[in-house]
């Protein structure tokens, strides 16, 4: 049996001359080749991971990953602890640049401009201006609710009060938090509950209209009710922004994502539509993990 991953990678090698054209159809082709009926129309590719390897010092944490991220869809990265899913996610906004000794190899191309996010010539700050990130543990800044959401706009030089007011309101509405905080915008953000803090962190990202939103196990520090509200929110955001989510909760991946990538020991084992991965995985390892026999 040929896995969807290897299939797609061989496709890529055939016509490397037109990476854009290829990546736009790669995900679609691999799905069709397995006879799975598409639940969603195949969306254009927003970002393409191309033969990407990552090193922590001498340790090779990711091995030649290639993966499309479809526009305005939710892509989930799943796999057992230590498989490299968070490492891959953090590469998208160059978080690894903050620590010494890390090395990227290969490319992550962001469309439509086809910029290689990992290229040394690309300023990580420019990358992070386009790609937002929500962390495992809610990390609001020691400021008011308002100033937390306005932070990204302020560091981009926006000082106009009425513009800030509008964008803050819009972002808080987008994160389904507005009704809970509209009368206490100037209270400290740390006074909010954990789930509210996490939605505040999402609002903080939304305020600057990112093209891609990264979620790194966004609900692992939250209770079930707060988790449900974050998942609902991810569902709503899916229409506006491309989402990549790392989760160790397979039910969550099944609930929120359109595409799922299963990773193991730094390798991408299988990628496909979530319905296909969960109902009809092509690889035995994926099936074992999803059914809980392993991991």
């Amino acid at each position: 049996m040929v896995s969807s991953t290897t299939m797609r990678m061989s496709d890529q090698r055939e016509d490397q001359a037109t990476p854009q054209a290829l990546s736009n159809t790669a995900g679609f082709r691999s799905l069709r080749s397995h006879g799975v009926v598409a639940r969603v129309e195949t969306a254009p590719v927003k970002a393409a991971v191309e033969d990407f390897s990552f090193y922590y010092g001498d340790f090779k944490a990711l091995k030649s990953i290639s993966l499309p991220v479809h526009e305005k869809r939710v892509t989930a990265l799943i796999g057992p602890s230590g498989c490299g899913k968070s490492t891959l996610l953090r590469a998208f906004n160059r978080m690894h640049d903050l620590y010494p000794g890390n090395r990227y190899e290969g490319a992550i191309r962001l469309h439509p401009d086809n910029t290689n996010l990992l290229s040394p010539g690309v300023d990580p700050i420019e990358v992070r201006m386009r790609i937002g990130m929500v962390f495992q543990k809610p990390n609001p800044f020691p400021k008011s609710i308002y100033e937390n959401v306005a932070y990204g706009l302020r560091i981009r030089g926006e000082g106009n009060r009425s513009v800030l007011d509008d964008r803050v309101k819009e972002a808080l509405q987008g994160a389904a938090l507005w009704s809970e905080v509209e009368h206490r915008l100037h209270d400290p953000a740390t006074a909010l509950s954990g789930g509210q803090q996490q939605r505040l962190c999402i609002a903080r990202c939304l305020a600057t209209n990112p093209e891609v939103l990264l979620f790194d196990e966004p609900t692992s520090a939250l209770d079930p009710i707060a988790t449900a509200s974050i998942e609902d929110l991810i569902h709503e955001l899916r229409d506006k922004v491309t989402i990549l989510i790392v989760t160790h909760n397979m039910q969550q991946a099944a609930r929120v994502s359109d595409y799922t990538a299963y990773m193991y020991l730094g390798e991408l084992m299988e990628f496909g539509e979530t319905s296909q991965i969960f109902v009809n995985p092509t690889r035995k390892e994926t099936e074992d993990y999803i059914t809980g026999r392993f991991g």
């Binding site: 990390n139 020691p142 932070y151 990204g152 981009r156 990202c205």
Partner: peptide, 11 residues
């Protein structure tokens, strides 16, 4: 993680 939050915003 507080610093990472700021860097992730493009700070």
């Amino acid at each position: 993680n507080m610093r990472e939050g700021s860097y992730a915003m493009g700070g």
